[in-house]
Design a protein around this nucleic acid. Structure first.
Lengths: 224, 224
DNA sequence: CGCATGGTTCGATCCTCATCGAAGCATTCC
DNA sequence: GGAATGCTTCGATGAGGATCGAACCATGCG
């Protein structure tokens, strides 16, 4: 009966269906209000509020108050990574989907992971950025080369190393089992994709759908 | 109220203290019997048995019957990775340890992760193997170079690619936040360390303690 | 100010599930 | 075969916690 970190406490927070739905919704990266999360989880507002305070107390969420709105978001990329890991196991053992449906197919191609792009497109992009030496592997970290710095700034992607958050990070993809790009740069790239309207977020889903023209542009810029 | 993989189901399996203790114990990599796990979790044998069947049904465990003994083990490295991720979050948010105690310090230096070595020593080893070009990074995978193949076989470390399991794999370390070596080769190296008596497994813990002479040998062979 | 809206707290209800003792199977040893 | 060991199933008990309605704060708007 050793001590150690209280893993059961963390896991049981994710282990309730209502809370799991909320966390899943927050994996989209945008912070949501209590009522939106209540709707998402399919519970009443009081119930949702109770769950949210538990998640807060457990350190899994952050809260940003803006006037009478209170926006809940995932506490950290580490928490997001944990949830992806759990999703990965659930996918693997779950005999749920006999065949992957169309929505799942879209998710495999491209989806939002916390605040950056994930899925086949994202994995291909990271590979290509390495090939073109815009990013460099260093031990197990990823570094931006000087060529990469000028390349991204030419694209109008702001690059500024925040204090706490690494610029580039590798994030493991549950669908492809390969890494894609996270960190500030990964977030900035997703931002560009959305603001340029190359792709749009699927309603009520993490899926990201490229328009035909947007796909061409994306491939020209990142997969060339 | 979307469908998707049943993440709550998986998380709730880990969310019970008794089950979490069992899984934690199994992170040591050796399969254990129901009575050992009952002792580990601090519950009676019937209770443990009930938990074990739930974990089996959830696909988190594998069972190997040998005579009247039934050995339970983690189902896959993916499950082990998920548990490491949860441990990582629990470490991060848990204000448990004010200061890391001595046992925790030993865990940080070297410990067993499923079936291979983790901790600072393991991270340093992987770095060095890359530097010496015994292992090569390829995209996000790790490949054994021909120099590496002869090097390991000279050490008497058997290298044979099993069908299902990759030879080399990167596994993220929760204490160091860097990768260490998993896969068949990682397991073989841990095996060598133990059989050569360079280090011993701490009783009732995942910690691995090197003897003074063993540490020298390990450093000569893997960190030179 | 008063009213509407977003959110939390309180209280009561209900149900799942963790727990253990006792009994039942299976395997091995003598 | 019989006894012992390892483990599972059954049944009863009990506690934690998920849920919602109603009441209660807080903010913003007219």
């Amino acid at each position: 009966m050793r001590e150690g970190p209280d893993i059961a406490r963390i896991a049981s927070l994710v282990g309730d269906p209502a809370r799991a739905n909320m966390l899943n919704a927050l994996m989209g990266g945008t912070a949501l209000t209590a009522s939106e999360l209540a709707l998402e989880a399919g519970v009443s507002l009081p119930t949702a509020s109770s769950h949210l305070s538990k998640l807060m107390e457990g350190g899994l969420l952050t809260l940003a108050s803006q006037g009478r709105h209170r926006y809940y978001g995932l506490a950290s990329a580490q928490v997001a990574g944990m949830i992806e890991a759990i999703i990965g196991v659930a996918e693997a053992v779950g005999p749920k989907r006999v065949r992957p449906g169309p929505r799942d197919a879209a998710m495999r191609v491209a989806r939002v992971c916390y605040d950056h792009l994930a899925g086949e497109q994202a994995v291909a992009m990271l590979d290509r950025l390495f090939d073109r030496k815009l990013l460099l592997r260093e031990h197990n970290e990823i570094r931006l080369s000087s060529a990469g710095a000028s390349h991204f700034s030419a694209l109008g992607i702001e690059i500024q190393a925040k204090a706490r958050r690494p610029l580039c990070r590798a994030c493991l993809d549950w669908s492809v089992r390969r890494s894609h790009l996270a960190g500030t740069l990964g977030a900035a790239i997703l931002d560009k994709i959305i603001t340029e309207k190359w792709a749009r977020r699927e309603k009520d889903s993490r899926a990201v759908v490229f328009s035909p023209g947007g796909k061409r542009e994306f491939e020209r810029v990142f997969l060339a």
